[in-house]
């Protein structure tokens, strides 16, 4: 439990991951014994298998989280802001946030006028993000000095445990990072046929540049991407949402490698692990979509954990699913064999 809380408390607003790097670097270094940071801020570590000409599997999850970015300082300590990543502005009023200033953090809240003084029309509307302000209670001189235009703002995180679930802001995709690191811990003590490269990547929520650049530097034979996917809640009418507690979700789609996707399904079957299938017709919305076309092509597979209330401050996921996910990706990576695609061409460097 410790590791997940440590990861959740690291502030890594998408695009501003630098501030998180030293902390996360230590965590990755402690687990893998080696860690490398590239120009973008992706953190990678390798578990070598010690064999010649062994293939490389990239085990990857993004560690950036959605957040806000400051746009201006108004009278009496109010701060205006814009979203970084897919923020649902309906969930902002009532949120507690932390503004990350130059040398210190400021606590803030996002409030609204009370319902008593609103008209019936106003009650029905959601306030647009441009009109919302963060109330910091700090005097303007200090804010002007400490919070320049474009400072990152994250949600104040409270980790809660209930009903076999964990609820916090940023589980998308800190829980993925947790799964990857937990799998790495197990893989370190297992006999391997392939080198495992763990990559925690940046900027997935703001343009997916991290996964792409990490894959370019690693040039793996295959990438297994771990991310969050939508879980069913009572108000969902959708047909395709996944169940919390139903096990890891293996994604099928035209942008994913069929052979490795089938291999994941077979691995889950051989372990008697319950799993779920989801289908994405086009862009699957994760790093897997951009990694596949890097260099001369990197076959990708995608496996996710079901997450309720994605991109809200109360994202919720189940430990049971996470545990099964870790077992699945560990087993898949440990037994990885390079498949010689027909006329498989040696990759260009």
């Amino acid at each position: 439990m410790e590791l997940i809380e440590k990861l959740l408390n690291i502030n890594s607003v998408s695009g501003f991951e630098k501030s998180a790097n030293s902390e996360l670097k230590n965590i990755v270094g402690d687990i893998l014994g080696n860690v490398n940071e590239d120009a973008c801020g992706n953190l990678t570590g390798i578990i070598p298998c010690g064999k010649n000409n062994a293939p490389t599997v990239m085990l990857t999850a993004h560690y950036d989280i959605i957040g806000l970015i400051s746009k201006g300082i108004h009278e009496n300590g109010f701060v205006s802001f814009a979203p970084t990543g897919g923020i649902d502005s309906r969930l902002l009023p009532g949120a507690e946030v932390v503004i990350h200033g130059k040398t210190k953090d400021f606590y803030g809240i996002i409030g609204l006028r009370p319902p008593h003084i609103l008209t019936a029309e106003e009650m029905k509307k959601t306030e647009s993000i441009e009109k919302l302000l963060i109330d910091t209670g700090v005097n303007n001189d200090e804010l002007e000095k400490e919070v320049p235009f474009g400072s990152p703002i994250s949600f104040r995180n409270t980790v809660r445990y209930f009903g076999g679930c964990v609820s916090a802001s940023g589980l998308d995709n800190k829980l993925g990072c947790y799964a990857v690191l937990s799998a790495a811990k197990r893989l370190k003590n297992m006999p391997l046929n392939s080198n495992i490269c763990v990559a925690l990547t940046v900027s997935e929520d703001t343009g997916r540049s991290g996964g792409k650049t990490a894959a370019y530097n690693i040039n793996p034979d295959m990438a297994l991407v771990i991310d969050a996917t939508f879980a069913k809640t009572p108000e969902c009418e959708g047909r395709t949402e996944n169940e919390i507690g139903g096990g890891p979700v293996i994604c099928k789609g035209p942008s994913l490698n069929r052979f490795y996707t089938d291999k994941l399904i077979k691995t889950a079957g051989s372990l008697n692990l319950p799993f779920q299938i989801e289908v994405e017709g086009g862009d699957n919305g994760t790093d897997a979509f951009v990694i596949e076309t890097v260099k001369s092509g990197v076959p990708c597979a995608l496996v996710s954990f079901p997450l309720k209330y994605m991109h809200s401050p109360v994202e919720t996921a189940s430990f049971e699913d996470t545990e099964k996910l870790i077992t699945l990706i560990t087993e898949f990576s440990a037994n990885f064999e390079r498949r010689d695609f027909l006329h498989y061409v040696k990759k260009t460097d």
């Binding site: 035209p254 862009d283 979509f289 890097v294 260009t348």
Partner: peptide, 16 residues
């Protein structure tokens, strides 16, 4: 390959 789902197949070809 994969032109229909976002002009993807051409990228690795250009890289090579």
């Amino acid at each position: 390959v994969q032109k229909e789902v976002g002009f993807r197949g051409i990228m690795p070809v250009i890289n090579s």
